[in-house]
Amino acid sequence: MSADSSTSKETVNPTVDGSELIRFDKVTKRFGSHVVLDELDFSVASGKHVTLIGPSGSGKTTILRLLMTLMKPEEGTIKVGGEYLTHETKNGKLVPASEKYTREVRKNIGMVFQQFNLFPNMKVLRNITEAPVQVLGLSKDEAEQRARELLELVGLTEHIDKYPSQLSGGQQQRVAIARALAMRPQVLLLDEVTSALDPELVAGVLDVLRDIAHTTDITMLCVTHEMNFARDISDQVLMFDSGRVIEAGTPEKIFTEPEHERTREFLSAVL
């Protein structure tokens, strides 16, 4: 194991090219004395589908939550589309971002949660139209039109007037996907979106996501334990361990000939 710890100090930097959409620069996240992310550098190119894998506690979900501004990093900066997410420049100096500024940059990012988090007091339609109307300023008609199209995409048109509690977990998750897409985000974050579902409902949700991955140019960051799904949709797989990217590559490479010992151990445990 000593060989592992020495190699895991080298951070693999996967996609450095002109069209990068997301950049983490020396991001450190701690919970008390526990370091979740340790000076993490990584970037994602626009339009790519990137899957984060690794043992639990390795910091994958933390990355998504930082991007969604559900938590703040202790150190380092995050950029989305060339704009700082956590900071803003004032008089040439980098200062912590105001709520208003953050909200503006955050509009480009959507997220689907493990527990769906639909609004139980709103019907399916209103769950999807609420933010486009309130945040993007769409008219009610435009927003409803968009919602209908998305419900068709996720195959739930007939449930438009139901409350979330009247739907199965899989259906709720598909509504949540539609809700996130209604904001037309550049980036879609998927946080273990099938982990809370009964096994027979997983396929329906993954089919919808495959469809979206193959037919849109939306950038996806995906934390999942569904390795077949990851292989299907990913352009790139990042293997995390102890808050660092220890290996990165195409799904073919990572799943068939991983270089790193930790990756091999992890894959043999989950596959």
Binding site: M68, T69, L70, G110, L118, A180, M183
Partner: peptide, 9 residues
């Protein structure tokens, strides 16, 4: 969290 993710004020 969902409200934050949707940027609702």
């Amino acid at each position: 969290e969902a409200a934050t993710a949707l940027s609702l004020p």
